[in-house]
Structures are given as C-alpha cells and as structure tokens.
Amino acid sequence: MNITMQAVGDSAVKVNFTGRVTPELNTAIQSFCHKLEQVLIDGVIEWVPAFDSVTIYYQPQKLVYKEITEKINDLFEMPAVQNERSSRTIQVPVLYGGLYAPDLERVAEYNGLNVNDVIRIHQEKEYLVYMLGFLPGFPYLGGLDKRIATPRLEEPRAKTFAGAVGIAHEQTGIYPVESPGGWNIIGKTPLELFDQDKFLFRLGDHIQFYSVEENVFAQIKEQIRNDTFKMIITEG
C-alpha cells in the first residue's frame, strides 16, 4: 500500500491511496484516519475519507504545503495505533415496494428480474460503508450484487424523500434528508441517520438490510419518537 499527495488549493491536501477500491483499501484508509485522530497535527482542521483518498483540510498560516506533506508521510509510516475500532454490523429495516419504491419496477426491468427478486437480492449481502458524503450521514455502500446494479436515473428527481433506500450502479445508499437525487429508490427505512451531532453510520461499518411490513415500519417510527427503539448492532 502506498500513498501519493496532491495540493487541493491552498488549504487542503489530497492523500491518494494507490490500488483498487476494495475492502482492504478501505481498511487502510480507516487506519490512516484513526492515526490522524490520535496524533492531531497542529494546523489540521478536519479530514474527509473517500473511496481511494483522504483529503485533509489545514491552515496554511500554521503549516505550509511542504510541511504538511512531510507530516503526512511520517504519519503514514508510523505503525498502526492500538485500540482501533472493531467492525460493526448494523441491521437496517426497510419497507420495500409500494409508495416508497418509485423505481423498483425500473430496477427489476433493467435486470430482467421480478420485483420480489430485487427485494430478496438486496437483503442478501452485507454492505460496507466506504464513505459518508453527499448529504449529512449519507452512506456510500459497496458490495451490491451485480444482478441488481442499475444506472442512475437519466433525469434526477427534484425531491427524493428522507429515508429513501436507493441503487446507483453497483452502489446502494440511504437518503438521510429530503434532497434532489438520481438514485433508483426501492424502499424506505424508518431510521434517522443523524440527530444533533450524532451519526448512525461510520466509515467501515457493515450494513444488513431487512424487510419490514407497514405495521412494523410504523411501530419503529413510533419507538424512535419515544426514544425506545433498540437498534440491532453486532460487534466483532
């Protein structure tokens, strides 16, 4: 595993991780971010992990480009810090089909399947949170079964509802808030993806979707409102 660096304007540096985008590359990115968190380089403001890069925002009045690239190289060479987070698997309920699935037919048709196959296949795999971006708490999930991969809508929708579970190419994701968007929507989760300053998902989490009927969906909504909902998270 190697890194290369590029200036992104005068206040950011992009650290590229060379290699194919795989769960292993993602682990290397997580480990690097963990070091950033532990070491806290003076002048670094924040960082944004992505599929094959970590962009670090910094204050040039505290350290200039040459200095930050040296610090990043040192950090990369440093042995991994102890107490890395264990991986988690989060169970995410989804009400598939019906009103909340304007593109389910499209996904089925595109792949020559029936809608029930699409729903079944979508629940079969565990997905990896490669990055959060686009919207607050929006997880980019890798590992979608090629059998249900579907290109983005040609015309993005002006409004996609909060909780929408969608497919774009070989990725799946969840809309945390209402937003314009071009993903194929196949269902809706009752979960809230962030609240105040807490986020449901983090980089490296695994997500497993499970189908719920309308009454359970409503029940979960109610429990979330009353603060009694118990999220199923497996650590290991």
């Binding site: 609240d195 807490k198 909902f229």
Partner: peptide
C-alpha cells in the same frame, strides 16, 4: 463476536 443491543438516543430535533 458479541451480539449486543444498542439504544441510540435519537431525539426529535425539537
């Protein structure tokens, strides 16, 4: 691998 139930305090932003 331990299975645990977590309660996340998701309050309505009121």
């Amino acid at each position: 691998m331990g299975k645990a139930e977590f309660k996340l305090a998701f309050r309505a932003p009121s």
